[in-house]
Each structure stands twice: as C-alpha cells, then as structure tokens.
Simulated scan of single mutants.
Amino acid sequence: MRLLFLIILLNFTLNAKTFIDMYNREVEVTNNNKIVCLGPGTLRLITYMQLEKKLVGIEKKELRFSPNSAYSLVLDKKFIKSLPIVGQGGPGKMPNLETLINLKPDIIFTSILSPKQVALIQEKTKTPVIALSYGSNYSGKNNKEDKIEAVKKSLLLISKIMDKQNRANELISFMNKQKEALKKVKIDDKAVYVGGVAYKGVHGITSTESDYPAFKLLNIKNPILQNHIGHAFVNKETLLSFNPEVIFLDSVSKKIILEEIEKDKAIYKHIKAFKNNNIYWLYPSNFYNTNIENIYINSWLIASYFGKNIDIKKVKKRVYEKFLGEDIKTNVH
C-alpha cells in the first residue's frame, strides 16, 4: 500500500510544472482539465483563448450576457448557466471557498484580486491560483505596465499552462499588426477628451482615463490628465477650462451621459466640441474590466471620425472574428 502511494506521489510530482504568474509568484500546476475564473476580466481572456468549456464554476456577475462585454455573447448560455456559482464576483471580491473546495478545479485563474487574496485562496482550496493582469490600475506585478502589453503576457501565460501556444501566438500577432497599422494613421492635432469611461461601474462625462488605450494606439494625448496614470474623475470646471475641440464618449455610460448633458446643458454649451457638434460615441471600453477587442475597433472608429476612409463594419467584423470567433452585432448609436 505504501509503495502504491509512493508511485502515485512520484507520478504526481513528475507531471507538475512550475509557472510564474503576473504577481511574480511561483505556482506549481499538475493538471489543466478543470478551471475556474475569478475577478473582472479573467473569463474574457479565457474566452479569447477558447478555453471556456473547461469551466467547472462561474461567478454570478458573468451571467449578464451583455452587449457591453462582447465575449459574454459568444458563450454557450445553457452551459454557463448550468455551472455552480462560485461567488458574486467583482473587483477584490472573495469567492465562496467552500464551493471551490467541493468543485476541485485543477487551476483557478484570477484578476484584480490582491496578492494576499490570491495566496489565501490557494492555501484554503489547495488549488494552484494563477494571477493574470490588465496592466496599470488593473493588478499585476507592475502597476505602470501598459494594458495591452500586460494582456499579451497574460495570454502567453495562459497558453503555456493550458497548452494553447498557437492560439496565443495568433492573437498576439494580430494585436501587433493592428498596432503597426494604427501607428501609420496620422490624426489632426486637436484638443481631444474622452469621457464616460466605466471604472467599477458606469459614470458620466467627467470620468476619463489618462492612458486611454484607443488614444494611445493613435498617439493621441489626453492632456487634461498630464500628470496622472490610469482612471480619474475631473471636475466640470476643469473640463470647461480645457475646452476640448472634440469629445469622445463611451457608449457604456450613454444613459447617464445623456441625462447629465440635459441637466447641465448651460455648462456644456460653452465647450467647443458641443458648440460645433463634435461629439462622438465609442464602443464600451470597460465592462467588468477592459474589452480588449474594442480598443482596436475604437481606434479605427476615432480615425474615421477624423476623416480617414475606413470601413468600420469590416474592421469590427475582422476584430471580433479574431478575438471571439464570430462577428457580434453591436452598435454605438
């Protein structure tokens, strides 16, 4: 009996592989057949990697199937709804540890859980926990790391653990080609602003982001936040003083924004962008973390608003098919 136990233990040890997660933790993984995703954006990356069928549990927040998060629309609803709920979900929200223990997943992937939370979940469940990252302000070992670069590293990490290197290489190659193509687009030098950016919920016009990814790919600055990294709220007086010529608004917050414009039209009518009707809607940037595919679609959409000859319908189809396997019928208007 003891010999059999030693043989099983030896086999278990030989099959184990060690990976470095995005918190720079060494995590030993033996099997990769059953997974659970915890925290904002984790299931999105797993869906990009075409691994959602390996799920054995789901957060309640992932049952919304909203057009604000395109990845949720390609999930098998019947399968997802059949999975046990492992917790409410949300930034920094702990799962139900007892449920996780009973489910016995091989791996738990996380995002926007603190290093202490990640370590605690691993300790209590005796399951390898892999921290992923969306870069600056979205967890990870380097809080100043570019969002897209952090996501690429997370995709590569997932691919090594789950034996899906070809899929990660395909996605990263596409992202790199998009970056190079957008770098060649020349945008008029105008005072621009992006508002209505969601961050742990939807917000009005004064919610913005200094390193807004769709701007960054086009080398557009958000000068209203020169000395700030990541998300921020600006006051209306600052926005009025900045007086942008062009304003881009995130459609995820459309209802709140339209109510705000109606309520404060006496203020907004003095801003050049409103005076000249240079107000443009973008696809949702953040909804339970960042919609990476929409970063690229929004960059091309912004370029088209600046007069570039771009077929947005074709761009959207190509991007969605690459990330999600099919075109998604969404609209910003």
Rank of each mutant, 00 (worst) to 15 (best):
F19K: 02
V36M: 05
P40K: 15
G39N: 09
E28F: 11
I20A: 00
K17G: 02
E26L: 09
F12L: 12
E28M: 11
L14T: 12
M22P: 05
L14W: 07
F19A: 04
V36H: 06
N33M: 12
V36E: 04
F19S: 02
E28G: 10
V36R: 05
N15P: 01
V29W: 08
N15R: 15
T18R: 01
P40D: 08
N15V: 15
I35M: 13
F19P: 03
E26R: 05
L38N: 08
L38E: 03
V27M: 01
G41L: 10
P40F: 10
V27F: 01
P40R: 13
G41V: 12
F19E: 04
V27N: 00
N31W: 13
F12E: 04
T18G: 00
I20K: 01
T13L: 14
Y23Q: 03
V36T: 07
L14R: 07
V36L: 05
P40T: 12
N15H: 13
F19Y: 06
C37N: 07
N24R: 07
V29H: 05
F19T: 04
T13Q: 14
V29L: 10
N15C: 15
R25D: 06
A16P: 08
N15L: 15
R25C: 03
N31S: 14
D21L: 00
G41K: 08
K17I: 08
A16C: 09
A16L: 07
R25E: 06
T13P: 13
I20H: 00
C37Y: 03
N31Y: 14
N24M: 09
G39P: 12
E26F: 07
N33C: 09
N31I: 14
V27W: 01
K34C: 05
M22C: 09
T13M: 14
R25H: 02
E26C: 06
P40C: 11
L14G: 07
C37I: 02
A16Y: 03
N24I: 03
A16N: 05
M22I: 08
V29P: 01
N33I: 08
D21R: 00
N15K: 15
N32R: 14
A16G: 07
L38H: 07
N32D: 11
N32P: 11
G39Y: 11
